[in-house]
Each structure stands twice: as structure tokens, then as C-alpha cells.
Simulated scan of single mutants.
Amino acid sequence: MSVNDLSTVNAVLNALSFVLLLIGYHHIRHGRQAKHKKWMVGALISSMFFLISYLIYHYHVGSIPYPHYDWTRPLYFILLVPHIILAAAMTPFIFYMVYRALQGRFELHKRVARVVFPAWVFVSISGVLIYVMLYLR
């Protein structure tokens, strides 16, 4: 595996995070806190592996410009800009949210999760879509 393969690894890790987040959400909505915790820890771990892989990839490869000059170009940037902003903004809040849950401060955890969870889901799935548009189209 080369450094260039990490873009695919990143997309897979984003897709995995997306699925784990949805499963974890399903469990908490049905009152299964122990299962929720396991799936959400999985989402956190896959997201952490994504971040490590992403940083390694971009350290070696740099930024990849969008190669298409057609109707998809504005769509790509409409997706990319909030993806980048939310990814950067939500990271410290994810750790805060996890910290509160580990402390047993579930009301604070829940309050933060109502904002952070949708952002995390969006960033995970939009990362996959960005990969498809950038590398597979």
C-alpha cells in the first residue's frame, strides 16, 4: 500500500464512521445505553484513524484540486466548504461530549450531542461523497 492509497482508506473510514454513528444513535433512541456506548466508541475510533490517515496523506500528497470544470464543480465546493468548516469545528466538541459521557454527566453530553451528532454524520457522509467526486468520477 502506498500513500496514495490512503485516500481510499479515508473514504472507507468515513463510511464506517457514518454507519457506526447511525447504529449508535438507533441504540440510544431505544434506551440501550450500553450498546450505544460501544457503537459510539467504534465511531470515535474509526474517526480517529481517519484523522491520522488524512493527516499522513495530505502531508505527503498535499491538496488535490478538483479536476472537473462542469456542472459538478459548484456542487463539489458547496459540499466541501461546510465539510471542512464542520470537521474542524466539531473535533474539540466530540472530545468534550465523550468526556461528559464518561463522567456520567449525561445531560451535558446529550445537549452537546444534539448539535455535534448531526455535524459528525454530515462530515462523515460528505467525506465519502467528496472522495467519489474527486477520485472516482
Rank of each mutant, 00 (worst) to 15 (best):
83 H>F: 10
70 D>Q: 07
136 L>K: 11
20 L>S: 10
66 Y>N: 03
89 A>E: 03
73 R>S: 07
11 A>V: 00
59 Y>K: 09
129 L>G: 10
72 T>A: 07
128 V>L: 13
44 L>M: 10
38 K>Y: 04
98 V>M: 03
129 L>P: 06
70 D>R: 07
17 S>C: 11
40 M>H: 02
105 R>T: 02
10 N>L: 02
35 K>G: 04
82 P>H: 09
29 R>K: 15
69 Y>F: 13
39 W>E: 01
46 S>V: 10
67 P>V: 11
17 S>H: 03
67 P>F: 05
59 Y>A: 15
106 F>P: 08
34 A>Q: 14
115 V>D: 01
79 L>R: 01
108 L>P: 03
127 G>I: 02
72 T>W: 12
29 R>H: 06
100 R>E: 11
129 L>F: 15
76 Y>D: 10
10 N>W: 09
48 M>W: 07
70 D>N: 12
31 G>K: 08
19 V>L: 02
122 F>A: 08
120 W>D: 00
19 V>I: 15
4 N>V: 14
129 L>S: 05
128 V>C: 03
111 R>N: 12
132 V>F: 14
67 P>Y: 04
20 L>N: 12
18 F>R: 10
60 H>V: 12
52 I>T: 10
113 A>K: 10
71 W>L: 06
23 I>M: 13
106 F>A: 08
93 F>M: 11
129 L>M: 12
23 I>T: 15
51 L>I: 10
21 L>E: 00
52 I>C: 09
106 F>R: 11
120 W>K: 03
115 V>L: 13
127 G>S: 06
115 V>P: 01
19 V>N: 13
109 H>N: 10
83 H>I: 03
72 T>V: 10
59 Y>S: 13
87 A>I: 04
92 P>Y: 04
39 W>C: 00
48 M>E: 10
68 H>N: 09
60 H>W: 14
123 V>C: 08
39 W>A: 08
123 V>M: 06
110 K>C: 01
97 M>A: 13
92 P>D: 02
12 V>N: 09
81 V>Q: 01
29 R>E: 13
2 S>V: 00
56 I>P: 04
8 T>N: 05
78 I>D: 00
41 V>G: 05
112 V>M: 09
2 S>Y: 07
95 F>K: 08
113 A>H: 02
29 R>D: 07
109 H>S: 12
34 A>K: 14
12 V>H: 04
59 Y>N: 08
18 F>N: 02
120 W>A: 03
23 I>R: 09
30 H>C: 08
50 F>V: 05
123 V>E: 13
137 R>F: 14
115 V>I: 14
126 S>G: 00
57 Y>I: 07
12 V>E: 01
36 H>E: 04
77 F>T: 14
9 V>T: 11
111 R>M: 13
11 A>I: 03
130 I>E: 01
57 Y>L: 12
71 W>G: 06
78 I>E: 05
95 F>S: 11
26 H>F: 09
9 V>K: 06
35 K>L: 15
19 V>D: 01
39 W>N: 12
89 A>D: 00
107 E>N: 12
92 P>R: 06
17 S>W: 00
135 Y>L: 08
41 V>T: 11
88 A>I: 13
30 H>Q: 07
42 G>D: 14
115 V>Y: 12
69 Y>T: 08
91 T>M: 12
7 S>H: 08
67 P>R: 09
137 R>Y: 10
57 Y>A: 00
62 G>H: 04
9 V>F: 15
33 Q>V: 15
